[in-house]
């Protein structure tokens, strides 16, 4: 088979890239997680499950739960803001949709770090938001927004919102407009059409966008580092600490593996769900 040989050649660079830069480091992390920390910080190849036992220590469970709570909040807020935006864009005349989507992804063109620093300027005690609210007479004393969980959620939502908008938008685009008209024709007011038809049929986009934000947020360490200012710790920060200041690579690896496991489970659920809905949708004659 000629095409099979061609396929192999085409897939080779990508496979090699993934092998060297993804599989290899992952295998290393996997191996380290079952080893022991050396006295001076190195990795001693002695098999041990202690690292995983430590993951279940109350301190770390607490950190996992905090991370999950922040990530979940970020995902929900992104959906609440992103769904109406995606819906509005899908309702624009055809020629306006592309420019609108372009503006949605425009922030991606600047550096993640710089965008996050910008939020420090906006959120701090003498920042634009506090000064603005004070100027309007809404508050007397500046609000402590920076270096709280809220600040982290704001940063995460800001950075990952485009993913939600894009995935919900593509879901809405797939809707057969006649199905929405049929609902109206059968007597449904717009909000009932939305709840009974639009929302259920766009669930794949909602779930994909939500899981995406959750997965990217729960392991994030730059945003909690900058906007949490060390006051709020997420798993990403703890892992970072283990590989740097704490010099406990095996434990850092065990934490990383646990995080990867959580993400994998979520992604599998999301894929299965959207696959099932896509199958149902295939009714076009």
């Amino acid at each position: 088979m000629k095409s099979r040989a061609t396929n192999f050649l085409l897939i080779l660079p990508g496979a090699a890239w993934l092998g060297v830069f993804l599989l290899l480091p992952c295998s290393l992390v996997l191996a380290y997680a079952f080893m022991t920390r050396g006295v001076y910080g190195g990795v001693v190849p002695t098999f041990s499950l202690d690292n995983f036992v430590r993951v279940f220590d109350a301190v770390y469970i607490e950190i996992f739960l905090t991370s999950a709570r922040i990530a979940l909040l970020a995902a929900l807020v992104s959906l609440v803001i992103g769904y109406p935006a995606a819906y509005a864009i899908s309702r624009l005349p055809g020629t306006w949709q592309l420019p609108a989507l372009f503006f949605v992804i425009l922030p991606f063109w600047s550096n993640y770090l710089i965008r996050t620093y910008a939020w420090i300027v906006l959120l701090n005690r003498t920042g634009v938001i506090n000064e603005g609210l004070r100027g309007l007479g809404i508050i007397d004393a500046p609000l402590d927004i920076l270096y709280t969980e809220s600040a982290i959620v704001v940063g995460l939502v800001y950075n990952y919102l485009p993913f939600v908008i894009l995935s919900v938008f593509s879901s809405i685009q797939r809707l057969n407009p006649e199905v929405l008209e049929a609902s109206e024709d059968l007597g449904a007011a717009p909000w009932r059409t939305f709840l009974r038809v639009t929302l259920p049929l766009t669930m794949p986009g909602v779930v994909a966008g939500g899981v995406f934000v959750f997965v990217l947020s729960i392991g994030n360490f730059i945003t909690p580092n900058l906007l949490g200012g060390g006051q709020v710790k997420m798993v990403g920060n703890v892992i970072y600490d283990q590989f740097t200041s704490a010099r406990d690579w095996p434990f850092g690896a065990a934490l990383s593996l646990s995080l990867i496991a959580i993400m994998m489970v979520l992604l599998v659920i999301q894929t299965t769900l959207s696959h099932r809905i896509r199958k149902i949708e295939k009714v076009e004659a």
Partner: peptide, 18 residues
């Protein structure tokens, strides 16, 4: 449309797939 005593059968049938 929703208040008209008139109903439509669509070309694509427009059944609710879910």
């Amino acid at each position: 449309a929703r208040r008209r005593p008139v109903n439509m059968m669509f070309q694509s049938y427009a059944l609710f797939p879910h």
